[in-house]
């Protein structure tokens, strides 16, 4: 058992996250070889035989990192307050690896959304969320960041300006850094005050603009990993063949598709001409005939 813990730690150390995923998948095949369900209890009961508290804390941390990484959710690792025990029990109680993974990711996304709504944004990085397939969270995160910044506008109290709130906000810290202010309070007659306010307003404006431009870009991201429980790979598997089929038709969005197909049914000759240019005939016809049968 302790060998299992060591081997998992070793995998993380070598960057073999892929193998951890395999081992997790292996749980459904052979529980004895991949005793993920027992590992934490074992450490709890016998852990102090093998290592001191510090080492144990590191093991638990590494196990957590490894599991999160294998679930493609490393970006939420430090943000959420869910213990590794809960994660593992949710994951392992599912029917299959895919179901378990989807469930855990749903839970994580829900918690992340909650964090975003409560403006607890310290450990959420938009770019990393997008990388892990949580792209649909990004617009709300950015929005929340801006709201957070708006809320903590520095206020004047007596002769000083209180900056504590600004220190707590993600964008606020960036404002403070760009104005080169490290203190929690500033005197009103400090020369940096005007600079600080200018930086604050600029940041607000910048982020609003950025949000607008990003909204168009994020369409693809949200399409890839949706909230309705679709896993990234599944989403990809479905979306990948689509361009091959729909190259000839340049409609924007999926909602349009059945409509075009319907029109195509009526005017097969026009469709034929278009598709000849872009793709081979064979697969297309099959697809079409399949569609017509359904109808």
């Amino acid at each position: 058992m302790i060998a299992f813990v060591r081997s998992v730690c070793n995998m993380v150390e070598r960057g073999d996250i892929d193998l951890i995923g395999e081992s997790l998948r292996g749980y459904w095949v052979d529980k004895k070889a991949h005793p993920w369900h027992r590992v934490l209890k074992y450490l709890q009961r016998k852990g102090d035989k093998y290592a001191d508290q510090k080492q144990l804390a590191e093991w638990v941390g590494v196990l957590r990192d490894g599991v999160f990484a294998a679930l493609d959710a490393l970006s939420l690792n430090l943000a959420v307050d869910i213990s590794i025990e809960e994660i593992l029990s949710t994951l392992l109680s599912a029917e299959t690896w895919r179901d378990g993974r989807r469930e855990v990711r749903n839970v994580l996304a829900k918690v992340a959304l909650d964090l975003i709504d409560r403006h607890k944004l310290d450990h959420l990085q938009p770019s990393e969320l997008a990388r892990d397939g949580f792209g649909f969270l990004v617009p709300r995160l950015l929005d929340s960041q801006i709201r957070q910044l708006e809320k903590c506008r520095p206020v004047e109290k007596d002769d000083t300006i209180d900056l504590t709130a600004l220190h707590r906000s993600v964008l606020g810290r960036m404002v403070l850094r760009s104005a080169e202010v490290g203190e929690r309070k500033l005197r009103r007659d400090d020369p940096r005050v005007s600079e600080l306010f200018a930086a604050y307003d600029r940041m607000l404006l910048d982020k609003e603009v950025e949000k607008g431009t990003l909204a168009t870009k994020l369409d693809e991201l949200t399409a890839q990993a949706t909230l309705n429980g679709q896993v990234v790979e599944e989403a990809r598997a479905i979306s990948a063949p689509e361009p091959a089929v729909g190259v000839g038709v340049e409609e924007n969005g999926r909602t349009q598709k059945p409509l075009t197909e319907f029109i195509d049914e009526k005017q097969p000759s026009a469709r034929e001409k278009k598709t000849k240019k872009s793709a081979t005939k064979g697969p297309k016809r099959k697809k079409k005939s399949g569609g017509s049968k359904k109808r």
Binding site: L43, A57, V60, G61, S83, I84, E85, R177, G182
Partner: peptide, 26 residues
């Protein structure tokens, strides 16, 4: 004499969090 795994985990995570917050410090 059982090990409190949850506590260890929490302390580990909060250590990492502190590091990241101070990395963001102005």
């Amino acid at each position: 004499d059982q090990v409190d795994i949850a506590k260890l985990e929490k302390s580990h995570i909060s250590g990492m969090r502190r590091l990241i917050v101070s990395l963001d410090s102005p």
